[in-house]
Amino acid sequence: MAEKMRLTIGLVTKPGTTMQYHTGGWRTYRAVINQEKCIGCRRCADSCPDGAPFECAHDGKKKKFCVNYDYCKGCGICAYECPVDAIDMAVEEK
């Protein structure tokens, strides 16, 4: 744990600050998107509780999705939901 924060009156907290905590460290498996197979449908991004998959680029005509490994907890929802089987759950190497 980093240095302790100075408290605020009423413990009022700044917005969106969990971003500094990387839940990627919890992971046993990592979601890996096969860019060849990906059709850019964004089902993975819409079904991830952790906002890990994101639109990373336009590759010519189609959208490309990447995974932000700072937050991917490795649950595998995206791999299960992917309509074209473009996501593999690979064992995390530490």
Partner: peptide, 24 residues
């Protein structure tokens, strides 16, 4: 794009939590 969520990443819900997906 992932960083723009109004329910931010880094929350401590279990992996695969349907309720966290609800909030996001």
């Amino acid at each position: 794009a992932a960083l723009e969520d109004l329910y931010a990443s880094g929350h401590r819900a279990c992996a695969g939590c349907g309720c966290a997906l609800f909030l996001k």
